[in-house]
Each structure stands twice: as C-alpha cells, then as structure tokens.
Design a protein around this nucleic acid. Structure first.
Lengths: 132, 132
DNA sequence: CTTTGCCTTCAACATATGTTGAAGTCAAGC
DNA sequence: GCTTGACTTCAACATATGTTGAAGGCAAAG
C-alpha cells in the first residue's frame, strides 16, 4: 500500500527528523549523506529516508571531528558498518575511533616530550653565554 | 652597524629559514604569523625576522591541529608564552595542549560508551520482537 | 652597480565543512 | 483538488587553512 513498502521498512525518517534528532541543520544531513557518513534510501518521489542509525552516526561524527578526524576519515570508518549493524559492529567502530584519537594525542605528547627533554629544539636552553 | 641591531638580536631568521626548519611552505609561515601562532620583528626594509622558537611553534601547531585544535585555539595558547620563554613556560603550554586533546578524546569515549551501553541511541538493540 | 634570489603585499585559487536561497516537486490535511 | 510545509537540486556564499602568482622592493655577491 504505502510507497515506503518498496524500501526496507526501517528507512522511515526524513531529513528533518534526522536533523532534529542529531541536533544539526537539514543542510548538514544532506552534506553528510553526500560524503558517505550516512546512507539514505529514496522514496518513489525521490525523497531521502533514513534509518535510526543516521542521527547516531552524525552525532558520533561531530564528536569525532573534534578530535581531528575529517569527514572523509569518519566515512571511511563507518563504511565498514554493515547495513543493519549489531552492537559488536559499533564496538569495533568505537575502538577504531578511540584508537585514532589516542594515536594522535600520543603523537602530540611525544613531540612535546622530545622538545622539552631533548631541548635542542626551540630556543629553549639556548642560554649559553656568548662571548662579547 | 647592522640594521638588525635595532631589534632583539635573537630575531635573525627569515621566512625561508623558518619554513625550512619547520618543514612547511613559506606561505604557511606568513599565514601562521598573520594568525598569531608566531611573532615576527621587522627589519628596516620591512622584512620579517623570527627567533628560533618560530619553527618550533609551527611544528607543535601542526601536531596540535591533528588532534582537532584550530589555528585560533593554538594561537590563544601560545599567546600565554612570554617573549623569550623558559622551559617551564613550554611545559605549561604542553600541559594545556595535552589536556585539551585528552578532554576531547574523553568526550568521544564518553559518547561512544553511552551509545553502546545505554543502547537506546541508534538502532542498536531495536531488536525486540514486534507482534505481527 | 647590477644581478640574483629572497622579500613584500595583494588577489585569486583550492579544499574542507557547511549554510542559504531560488526554483520547482511531493505529501498530507482540509 | 488545493494549500501548506517539507522535500528536491543547484549555485552562491561563508569560514578555515593554506598555495600560487603578479608586481615590485631589499640584500648580498661579483
């Protein structure tokens, strides 16, 4: 009967639904779809329909962006999620994201440590007396 | 005698010097100066001269950008460095940067944990049988 | 003092991450 | 069936982070 019967039944949410739930603008929802962070089915009238995971993916993406991941990188991680992910799939994705964040923080820490201990970097300890 | 005698003697490095040491393009050096990540003195001929810390600041900035800090945010941290910083000044800056990185990673971790345990987010565990 | 290379500013371009508005389509209520 | 609001695409704009090129100035070497 309903048009939506032609696509998997869990794809029922409109752009606005997802935008509201995720706390972003509708334009951002379209943007994230264009860039592979979320996936949409189309109705017979060519309108996007999302499942429940869309808002979640966006919310995760926003937090992941704060640790320096690009939209592309986030999409690359999400693409490993099956169509209808199980908790274990999300756990794997979570582990990948956290690992990447920690790797980057470790790189920062390592660079700062090197700078502060090695101390030949920067002007630090360039305090040797120079003859007049 | 020398023109440079008019400015603090440690400001001797040209844009190219700093760019080479920091491993970035000269244009990036000018960009970072415009945005307060590094500071320059000017020669009588209006050319920029940097001290040794410039390349270091840029290298730190590049790594900090990878953990999601913006150039503005990095400049705001660096602005707390005195003119000729001591190791302790750099240590404080390092602590601020690491703290920010860890805070953001913790936010990601917290959000993912909430999602995976609470499980009312996303479609996870929407696997309850629905009566026909 | 001229050459040569780096310097200057400024504007345009490029990519990432979005937002806004125009022109037109779809869907749901009256 | 018409109105209304949300949907569509597409182009333009906006901000962040730079790069590139043009037009011209400065500095050091011969």
């Amino acid at each position: 009967m309903s048009i939506a019967a032609q696509i998997p039944s869990r794809f029922t949410l409109t752009v606005k639904d997802v935008a509201t739930t995720a706390g972003v603008a509708p334009s951002a929802v379209r943007f994230y779809e264009q860039h592979g962070v979320i996936t949409a089915h189309r109705t017979a009238g060519d309108q996007r329909r999302f499942d429940e995971s869309a808002a979640c993916r966006i919310k995760v993406a926003k937090v992941a962006q704060r640790v320096g991941l690009t939209v592309r990188e986030i999409a690359d991680v999400f693409v490993t999620l099956p169509d209808d992910p199980e908790p274990q799939d999300w756990q794997r994705v979570a582990a990948v994201l956290i690992d990447e964040a920690e790797t980057r923080t470790a790189a920062l820490q390592a660079y700062l440590d090197e700078m502060l201990s090695g101390a030949r970097l920067c002007e630090i300890d360039n305090r040797i007396e120079v003859p007049d």
